[in-house]
Amino acid sequence: MLLYIHVPFCRSKCRYCAFVSRPLDMAEVEVYATSLPLEIRAFGKKLGRPKVETIYFGGGTPSLLPPWALSRIIPELVKHFDIHPAVEWTFEANPDSALDVDYLRALIGYGVNRLSLGVQSFADADLQFLGRPHKAKAAMAAFGAARQAGFANISLDFIWGLPGQREATWLENLKTAVRLRPEHLSCYGLTVEPETPLAALAAAGELELPLEIEQGRMYVHGAEYLEEQGYLQYEISSFARMGFQSRHNSGYWEGRDYLGLGPGAVSTLGGVRHENPRDVREWAALAKTGRCGIGGVALTREERVREFVMLALRTAKGLRLSLYRRLTGIDFLKENEGLITALRQNELIRISAGHLRLTKNGFLVSNLILERLRY
């Protein structure tokens, strides 16, 4: 099982962010650090001390949790879950809150062995536009602090397709990142999410993004550059040195069961999906009564098949056609014969070794392709 723990606190809300997050408030951190152990205990009992192969602290900004909060939370995980000896344990951090080497060493002492730093850009103008609370210099310093603390598995997050950004400036970001030699890179195209400040700018006609052809060059040439530098693309936005693919995220793409704890966290266990209340105190009230995970919804067959195809086509492995047929009784290629022919002619997909895979250009238009497929 995969275990995800959501930490909803941030120094400030970034302009593009649609995740469950709120400004740091120490009174709410106290509520969170008191309630999360209760939720951990409840699920540990409900699921019979389940085996956990990966742990992921995401947010929000987990690195804003003070040491006293970690000392309440993490021992409860070890006590109530059967954590695999070779667990991949990821902890997200923003550079401005990952400069304390002693704090980072304490994470390693608890068992954390993978750090994910939200760099987003090495250009201060980009960071200011995004509403990030750090500058490029802090990102460099945080990476150095993580190495000094002893992290041997560091992932850096970036966003491409920003206003004013061009292929050359994006590639310069990647070259700077490669010089640091992180083990993993996640590179996401800027998405304008509803009800964010960026959405308001777009609605007002004040958000000018690079042209689609320029964004396409950023994505394809950026991916080619990273692969030339030894970073294998194993998912639409993910690149890793050999042996450093994210096992946790790969578990999502393979459709494995996952348990989400914390405000707004989502779980899918045995085909049943549940989402926690997004409000910290509403979630805490449920944790206090032990009524965690109540009210899940069973996914329909259509939903399960759609997710299976969508997640598989996000990966470099692609969709295993024999497995699709075994699950559905349908020949995927015959069901989508006309579309498959058009996609192959336009070099947006490849079919080999029993798998249907999107090419790099196919990844660029993956949403359009998924909308047109028949399941």
Rank of each mutant, 00 (worst) to 15 (best):
A152K: 13
L198W: 01
E227C: 14
E227P: 01
L211R: 15
Y225S: 03
Y225H: 05
H134S: 11
F143K: 06
R179W: 06
E228Q: 14
H184W: 06
Y225A: 09
R114Y: 09
L174T: 00
L180C: 04
L130P: 07
L171T: 07
L201D: 13
N113K: 10
T191G: 10
L226C: 06
E195P: 08
W160T: 03
H221G: 11
A223F: 06
A199T: 01
F129P: 07
N113R: 12
P182C: 07
G230D: 00
A141W: 01
L209H: 03
L174N: 05
A203G: 15
L201H: 00
A149P: 01
L174R: 02
N113M: 13
R114E: 05
L185H: 06
H221D: 14
E195G: 00
A138T: 15
R147D: 05
P163A: 09
P194L: 10
R114G: 02
P197K: 11
E208T: 13
S155W: 02
G131V: 02
E227N: 05
L156S: 07
Q165D: 03
L190D: 04
L198E: 09
G150F: 00
E195H: 15
G118M: 02
E167A: 12
R166S: 14
E167R: 14
I159Q: 05
V119R: 07
K135L: 13
L185I: 15
R166F: 01
A136T: 11
P133C: 10
E212H: 10
P182Q: 04
A200L: 13
Q120E: 13
A138N: 12
G205W: 06
L156Y: 07
A168Q: 12
R166I: 10
R147T: 02
P194N: 10
Y188V: 05
R179T: 12
L115G: 04
E228W: 01
